[in-house]
Design a protein around this nucleic acid. Structure first.
Lengths: 279, 279
DNA sequence: CGATCGTTTGACGGTGCTCAATCACCGTGG
DNA sequence: CCACGGTGATTGAGCACCGTCAAACGATCG
């Protein structure tokens, strides 16, 4: 039913000559619709008579580009395993990260209304994705109400997440932005059944900085600050949340307010006097 | 088919006692599916046999709350006329604006996955919306492929817009953020067939500031700067774009680059200075 | 006309952006 | 085995930008 004509992708325009210039996105053995629905978080695995679906699964190596901004879009991807970042590349080469994607997330749906991808998608680690051909999508949704419902739910989540990302970027202080990001990541881990305390960041500091709208040096400093506050233990990309309540309190610092002093004089009182405001 | 049980809404938790405490959201005469599809931008008005659809239309007065954050969601709204702002209210009362909605936009779909609204929606002017009952939505989509397609397109647009908003907020300089916002607004106007040059802002400076993640005074100053640059003519909420090319050049200022120097302190420099460099 | 809110402008202080240097971690090749 | 770039992370110094506080000014509505 679905003919895979091309099993090789290269990344000429975005990551010109990315690490390992061959076979970064390759087809593997297809799987069932049931598997797809399970990955999308559908608990109710109704028997759904259509078992003749054959859903292509592709393997994406770390650093490989799954979707090219501006390219004609032919597939909607659903993350099966791994992590991705979505980004827009400015003409001066700056990469603006828009979001991170984890298993169950839908990638490339923004292209439905234009036929071309509006952002690039890059794998942050070796990952696998389901490939849903755009031209068959509406037919598939008609054939399988379960798939249709799963897609609507996923899109709804995606929309809700966009609001959460805006909340992160809107914070005044850089540490608050990072705290919100880490809490969001922690909640994502919990939703996925993994430990919300021990995080391993698949993305670089620069990627986080881009998402949060700050300089990457500021992200480094903010990590140091949150660690010094006693909320985190940071070792490169391994982050352990020590004081979730304190981190959450740090999250609640909004623009135009002066009530909350994120003071945590736990360690040696060397942290800067950001708390020396009104009584 | 659709029973409207309650024709009055008040806004107890969000805008406690908003201007005019009665009948701010009221039902009016229903309309046809064809009308809904037209408002959603579907050019291909196929006859679609189901003319027995009766789509409720409600009227929302300026300042009225259409959706309450945290409230159980029973409807997905499609803007028919007017303008809205979507926002999250922090516990300290700060309003974080997430997006603005114009005719054709879908409101409240983020609630599909949780059953509760994740953000509030407030009318910025007297407006009208289509009410699509959530419990009937999937059935309606099955009955009318045209409605289904229109919804998918609208959701795709919405997702793409989220990326654009992130791009606005990520800019370093405040004037760049405002320039990107104005260009986005201008493009929205053009898509809607209205003049992209003469804009009337339905939202306050504070709302814009919240969306862009800056202080509202900074928005005022940025308006002044863009006007002094010669890109705009600003009169309170009436904005006229004088030099679209210059405004667009201002838009292209990304983090980590040193190309631009929009320094034009004196009013003598009349023509665009952004083209002069790039050497 | 007065009250309230929105907008603008000013002054000041602090945060974070920029430019650097340093260190740690790799994979490569001598 | 250790030099050798290359990338990412951390830290420091300086200064411009913007957030905060404050006070006019203007618009809108009762």
């Amino acid at each position: 039913m679905v003919v895979i004509t091309e099993a090789r992708h290269t990344s000429p325009e975005v990551g010109e000559g990315w690490k390992g210039s061959r076979c970064n996105v390759i087809a593997t053995t297809p799987t069932t619709l049931h598997d797809l629905l399970h990955a999308m978080g559908m608990k109710t695995d109704e028997p759904l008579g259509d078992s003749n679906f054959s859903v292509p699964v592709w393997r994406v190596r770390a650093g490989a580009v799954l979707q090219h901004e501006g390219a004609r879009s032919e597939f909607v991807h659903v993350v099966r395993a791994g992590t991705f970042k979505c980004l827009k590349t400015s003409e001066d080469g700056y990469e603006q990260v828009l979001s991170f994607a984890a298993p169950g997330d839908v990638l490339g749906f923004e292209a439905v209304c234009r036929g071309r991808h509006v952002s690039s998608v890059v794998a942050l680690e070796d990952s696998t994705v389901f490939m849903l051909p755009l031209r068959d999508l509406s037919r598939w949704r008609q054939l399988s109400p379960a798939l249709d419902q799963a897609l609507q739910y996923a899109l709804s989540r995606q929309l809700a997440r966009a609001g959460e990302i805006a909340e992160m970027m809107a914070a005044v202080a850089a540490e608050v932005r990072l705290a919100r990001f880490l809490e969001w990541l922690s909640n994502s881990m919990a939703d996925r059944g993994q430990s919300p305390w021990r995080l391993y960041l698949r993305m670089s500091r620069r990627d986080i900085a881009s998402l949060l709208g700050v300089a990457h040096e500021t992200v480094s400093r903010s990590f140091g600050a949150l660690a010094e506050w006693g909320y985190l233990k940071v070792d490169n990309r391994s982050v352990e949340i020590i004081d979730a309540a304190g981190l959450h309190a740090c999250t609640r610092s909004t623009r135009g307010m002066a009530d909350e002093a994120p003071r945590r004089p736990a360690a040696a009182g060397r942290h800067r006097a950001a708390v020396a405001m009104a009584a």
